[in-house]
Design a protein around this nucleic acid. Structure first.
Length: 503
RNA sequence: CGGGGUGUAGCUCAGCUUGGCUAGAGCGCGUGGUUUGGGACCACGAAGUCGCAGGUUCAAAUCCUGUCACCCCGACCA
């Protein structure tokens, strides 16, 4: 039991760190606040990218790339944004080093930049500065562009994947001729995010606008997808902003309408980041390690051949190779993003079988097939599903001939089961509360999503978050119309909003 | 930025209070052998300018001064 994972019940944060570490997903680098994403973690990100990118393309978007550096004056042009990001910007002030005898490399004082460059915390400003040159006529609209990039936000307190100084994301930036069209775009993307979260990550989400206090600086309003982690805390998993004409005005982006009028363009921006990987971990994983939904799993099936004698090893290894050949030839299906099944064979005969099984469980491979002499004598194998921990997920005596159909069906079943289980958990930890006293009690124990009436004011929202550390996660589209009274002030409210403690 | 703490092998740490042989352990790593259906074991081995600089001393990982880095707790965030 050398590499045990801390149980969730004992220390949830440590459990999370143990999973990230032992599953080989990421580690802290020697650069403060920055992580190294290791191959197994990056493989999940690549799968996320592929699925999302196709969804963006299917909705008419194209990819482009804008600079990492943003002149300070650009950032300053949109006042809300400048204020929102000022405290977490990395600033480049010089462009050269020089070697000084005795001192080593120093920043060359003669290389000071005329104007400091900001490392992008987000790219609205540089992009809208560019759009100014691209947009003259209504015929140039809509402009539907996405970029895959890294950004830097100088965070004090970091956690792998969930909050790091540098992270990877995609950011969409669109320009439209009408307000309606831009608003439709923001909603359309939110639906893309919802379906990605639920259908690919198997992570149920609430959707709806943020309050004014929680929205993106520079946005007229922000829509979000919000998920519940297993410690009952909320995770903002994606945001889609309606930016109004704020950036068009800041960067003077006008177009001539069909009627010949000069008008400011309407904008949206939207993004999801490597934070989703943290969400995926905290939604599904158990005390045995990572649990990865099949549609995003870097490896779908691992075959572990077993044997003592050289003959037994050779036989089971050969059978494993034959099985892999069969499995990877299964016709590509939309369900798997038209990609072939990824099947790995574990050749480590030198290690004990238990150690090998556990290693794949920690890595979250959805299906494991064990083949030893006892199985092969009967032309069967042991089939283990990762959504049930350890031996609980095992079925012995599965005929080899049935595997191709069984494996595909089981992958789909695991995907479905993970979503339903997560949804059940979220719903079981969501409560309607009707008084502030009840709220204060429940927010600590048991925690979770508290649906409550709120008067819609910033003052009340701030008061609640100061007193309880809980914030309004979103004003869900899913809420019922229900006349009520704010639990704090008693002022009228037309529906409940969702409060929770959040990452 | 305020308070607390830690720097010794790849990792986790002991040793420091009370200075003294060649600086230790566990894990990991390498080699050889025995093992193998839920985290195997034995033997041997490689690996450290004790964060850095200066000082005290016959003698410093240990005491003193300075310095750097990192971690934890309080105001923000995909």
């Amino acid at each position: 039991m050398a590499e045990a994972i801390t149980p969730r019940a004992k220390d949830y944060s440590q459990w999370y760190l143990d999973i990230v570490k032992h599953a080989g997903m990421a580690e802290n680098s020697d650069v403060r606040g920055c992580m190294v994403i290791k191959p197994h973690g990056y493989a999940i990100w690549e799968r996320m990218q592929r699925a999302l990118d196709r969804m963006f393309k299917d909705t008419g978007h194209v990819n482009a790339y804008f600079p990492l550096f943003i002149p300070k004056s650009f950032l300053a042009k949109e006042e809300q944004m400048a204020e929102g990001f000022a405290k977490e910007c990395a600033v480049v002030t010089h462009h050269r080093l020089k070697a000084v005898p005795g001192e080593g490399l120093i920043v060359d004082p003669d290389s000071k930049l005329e104007e400091p460059l900001i490392i992008r915390p987000t790219s609205e400003t540089i992009i809208w500065n560019t759009y100014k040159n691209w947009i003259q006529s209504y015929r140039d609209l809509p402009l539907l562009i996405n970029q895959w990039a890294n950004v830097v936000r100088w965070e004090m307190r970091t956690r792998l994947f969930l909050r790091t100084a540098e992270f990877l994301w995609q950011e969409g930036h669109t320009a439209h001729a009408t307000k309606q069209e831009a608003e439709d775009e923001a909603h359309k993307i939110l639906e893309v995010y919802r379906s990605f979260a639920e259908d690919w990550m198997a992570m149920p989400v609430l959707t709806g606008p943020k309050t004014d206090g929680q929205k993106f600086p520079g946005a007229d309003y922000t829509l979000c997808i919000e998920a519940m982690m297993q410690d009952r805390k909320a995770l903002q998993a994606g945001t889609s902003h309606f930016l109004g004409q704020n950036f068009a005005k800041a960067f003077d982006v006008k177009f001539q309408s069909q009627a010949g009028q000069l008008e400011y363009a309407w904008a949206t921006s939207w993004g999801v980041s490597t934070r989703l990987i943290g969400g995926l971990i905290m939604t599904h994983s158990d005390d045995g390690g990572l649990v990865c939904p099949p549609r995003l799993a870097p490896i779908h099936v691992v075959i572990v051949p077993l044997g003592k004698s050289d003959d037994e090893k050779a036989n089971s290894f050969k059978a494993a190779e034959q099985l892999r050949e069969t499995l990877v030839r299964i016709p590509r299906e939309e369900f798997f993003g038209y990609e072939p099944l990824v099947v790995e064979i574990d050749k480590r005969f030198g290690q004990s079988p238990g150690a090998r099984f556990i290693d794949w469980e920690i890595k979250g491979v959805p299906i494991r097939i064990e083949m030893g002499p006892r199985d092969l004598a009967q032309q069967t194998c042991v089939l283990a599903r990762r959504d049930f921990p350890g031996k609980e997920g095992k079925t012995v005596g599965v005929p080899l001939g049935e595997l191709p159909t069984k494996v595909v069906a089981l992958l789909k079943e695991i995907q479905k089961n993970l979503f339903e289980r997560a949804k059940k958990y979220r719903d079981a930890n969501s409560f309607e509360v009707n008084s502030y006293d009840e709220f204060k009690k429940k927010i600590d124990e048991p925690g979770g999503f508290l649906w409550a009436h709120w008067d819609g004011t910033r003052a009340t929202e701030d008061r609640i978050s100061n007193e309880t550390k809980a914030t309004i996660r979103c004003i869900p589209f899913q809420r019922a119309k229900e006349a009520g009274k704010c639990m704090v002030t008693g002022a009228p409210s037309e529906g409940r909003v969702v409060f929770a403690k959040a990452y």
